[in-house]
Amino acid sequence: MFTNKPHHLHHSCKDKVQGCDLHEGEWGKVGTIIIWSCVHDGKAKKSKEVIESIDHDKKLITFKVLEGDIMEEYKSFLFTLQVSPKSGGSGSVVHWTMEYEKRHEAIDPPPTLLQLTVDI
């Protein structure tokens, strides 16, 4: 879903993801720029991201944040999402990795952003 149809994500979590718009490129392609509209900490937020890498074999995708509310506190921010089938059963396990560089040491790590990913 995150690779080819991220614009459908709001169907499963409308209270968290309000939209996902194609800004430039094609869905499912490296270099594509997407604008996410989400509710984070009770407020509407936006994030402009580029798909930095896709590995279909590993079911992995990496988004680099270019602009948006999160960049007020961070110099750089990457989201990596990897999906692995559950062993011995149906369904999958999702691993989110966040790599970031804070603008200064007084900025806390993003625990509420981590909770948003869990909720999604």
Results as ranks from 00 to 15, higher is better:
1 M>R: 07
4 N>G: 11
5 K>H: 15
5 K>L: 13
7 H>V: 10
7 H>R: 06
9 L>F: 11
11 H>V: 13
16 K>L: 15
16 K>P: 02
17 V>L: 12
17 V>N: 02
17 V>A: 06
18 Q>M: 12
22 L>S: 04
23 H>A: 14
23 H>P: 00
24 E>W: 04
24 E>Y: 07
24 E>S: 11
25 G>L: 05
27 W>V: 05
27 W>R: 03
28 G>D: 02
28 G>N: 04
29 K>T: 08
29 K>V: 12
30 V>F: 01
32 T>R: 03
33 I>D: 02
33 I>W: 03
34 I>P: 01
36 W>M: 05
36 W>E: 01
41 D>Y: 06
41 D>M: 13
41 D>V: 12
42 G>N: 00
43 K>I: 07
44 A>T: 12
47 S>R: 00
47 S>Y: 02
48 K>D: 02
49 E>P: 00
49 E>N: 06
49 E>C: 07
49 E>F: 00
50 V>H: 01
51 I>T: 03
51 I>R: 02
54 I>C: 03
54 I>F: 02
55 D>Y: 00
56 H>E: 15
56 H>C: 05
57 D>F: 08
58 K>D: 03
58 K>Q: 10
58 K>E: 06
58 K>I: 05
60 L>Y: 05
60 L>H: 07
61 I>Q: 00
64 K>P: 00
64 K>V: 05
65 V>I: 10
65 V>H: 05
65 V>D: 01
65 V>L: 10
65 V>M: 06
67 E>F: 00
68 G>I: 04
69 D>C: 05
72 E>Q: 10
72 E>L: 09
73 E>W: 07
73 E>S: 13
74 Y>I: 01
74 Y>N: 02
75 K>T: 09
77 F>H: 00
78 L>T: 12
82 Q>S: 09
82 Q>C: 08
85 P>S: 14
86 K>V: 15
87 S>E: 14
87 S>T: 13
87 S>P: 08
92 S>E: 15
93 V>N: 13
94 V>S: 11
95 H>M: 13
95 H>K: 14
96 W>Y: 15
98 M>D: 10
99 E>N: 14
100 Y>Q: 06
100 Y>W: 04
100 Y>N: 02
101 E>Q: 14
102 K>W: 06
102 K>R: 11
103 R>A: 14
103 R>N: 12
109 P>H: 11
109 P>T: 12
110 P>Y: 01
110 P>L: 05
110 P>N: 07
110 P>T: 03
111 P>C: 08
111 P>M: 12
112 T>G: 04
114 L>S: 08
116 L>F: 08
117 T>V: 13
119 D>V: 08
